[in-house]
């Protein structure tokens, strides 16, 4: 029974990684850049929700919605102010370094406003836990909500990308910006939209993460951000199903390693798995080199 419980916890943590990894992978797919500030957007989302719930006594759901709006606006702003001017810069390192700069900027801005003491987060899921098998297996309400959210996000996002005109325009921009412009697609707007979606998802991830692990500090986003980046690479960066699979596998591996091997070595094991996967399959689990006949 304990294995099952670990597995469910792993899937839950993995769902959070997966939602964050979607933001990484979509931005990489379209803007061809690694947005290392993505993890910190999660943390900002957490603070936005917490502020609404604590200071303004808002309903948790309102807190979540405000967090989504704040992060979406933040994502669009970061892209427009920090990344767009560097598009077409001589070196792709310029935008990478800027992303790291934005990451520190966000951490320190929050540090300045809210201080460095971790705040205890209040769960946004006011539901009772689910007890199964006569109380032998307990699944928290947070776990259920997290996994359900992840599934809903995956389905909606996949449908959006594959079935709508805007979604297909995003794929077109990700493949060939020049040709996309010749079709009449506004590349800047499409990239901004990608940042908006990725950051909105980061807010959801932030709230879910803090509900399960209720401590929030300006550095809360760093580690999940890096893990989600690993998950995106693990699954095949640029691939949306890859980000989902990578995220969930990573969460499961992390929790199982913590439970059965060593809680101190868990992170090392996670990264070791990444290294092995990349040695065997450099494009990640679901990433495939584009096959093109010329």
């Amino acid at each position: 029974m304990s294995f099952l419980s670990y597995l469910i916890n792993g899937i839950s943590l993995g769902s959070v990684y997966a939602i964050i990894a979607l933001g990484y992978t979509m931005v990489y797919g379209i803007a061809k850049m690694l947005n290392f500030a993505h993890g910190d957007v999660i943390m900002v989302g957490g603070y936005a929700a917490l502020t609404m719930m604590l200071s303004l006594n808002a309903n948790p759901l309102v807190g979540v919605l405000v967090a989504i709006v704040v992060c979406t606006v933040l994502g669009i702003t970061i892209e427009a102010v920090a990344y767009r001017p560097l598009r077409g810069a001589a070196s792709p390192l310029a935008v990478l370094i800027t992303a790291i700069g934005v990451s520190y900027f966000l951490q320190n801005m929050v540090l300045l406003i809210f201080g460095s003491n971790p705040k205890s987060f209040q769960s946004v899921v006011p539901l009772p836990d689910l007890k199964l098998a006569g109380g032998a297996l307990t699944i928290t309400a947070e776990t259920i909500v997290t996994i359900t959210s992840c599934i809903i996000i995956m389905v909606v996002l996949t449908t959006f990308i594959n079935k709508t005109k805007t979604g297909q325009a995003m794929q077109a921009v990700s493949e060939d910006k020049g040709a996309a412009q010749l079709m009449g697609i506004n590349v800047n707007k499409t990239i901004a939209l990608t940042f908006a979606i990725g950051s909105g998802l980061a807010a959801v991830a932030g709230v879910l993460l803090c509900s399960s692990y209720p401590s929030l500090s300006p550095y809360t986003g760093s580690m999940p951000g890096i893990k989600a980046f690993v998950a995106a690479v693990f699954g095949g960066i640029g691939s949306i199903p890859g980000a989902m699979l990578g995220g969930i596998l990573l969460g499961v591996i992390e929790i199982l390693a913590k439970a059965y091997i060593s809680s101190q070595l868990a992170d090392a094991i996670v990264f070791a798995v990444l290294i092995v996967v990349l040695l065997v399959k450099p494009t990640g689990l679901l990433g495939k080199p584009i096959q093109e006949k010329v």
Binding site: Q168, E175, L182, E292
Partner: peptide
């Protein structure tokens, strides 16, 4: 800007075709 040209009534078939390889023919 390039993305506003096509709606003026001018289309450009670029060198090397540059079709969107991962989209279907219909898309």
């Amino acid at each position: 800007p390039a993305h506003k040209i096509v709606s003026l009534g001018m289309a450009h078939v670029p060198e090397g075709r540059r079709v969107f390889a991962q989209l279907t023919v219909y898309q």
